[in-house]
Amino acid sequence: MLNPADLTKMLNQANSGGIHTTLLVNSQGALVAFSGHGDSAVRIKATISSNIWLAYENSRHNAISDDGMHCFLASCEFGIIGVQKAGSSGVLLCMFADKTVGLGILRAKINTMATFLNGPLANIIAP
């Protein structure tokens, strides 16, 4: 069983050094879990992240090799985003960071978090 309170605490551990929001979103764009501060538009962020992921996922056969998307990083006007798949059920882990954060450290953090979450999230069955 997943304990939502623990899940939030877990996600919160990544929120340091410029990373301000960490969230889990399912493949339908609905928010699963969230940790961050001072942010009201988190549902919208979740939806957009999931939609971008799906867009790449659908067209990866043409552009990327066939073994699936591992992670994507996007550098936007006001900050950077990292998205990676966590668990086997299609749940995505998203991190939002300030512009000052290096892409490398974001990638390392998101990778560590996703590896850790793979275990507990394997319990969730894909819809």
């Binding site: 339908q28 764009g29 609905a30 928010l31 919208i44 999931s50 939609n51």
Partner: peptide, 12 residues
Amino acid sequence: FTKRGIINYNIL
């Protein structure tokens, strides 16, 4: 309706 997130965003 499986894309509820997108619909919500569009409603916004």
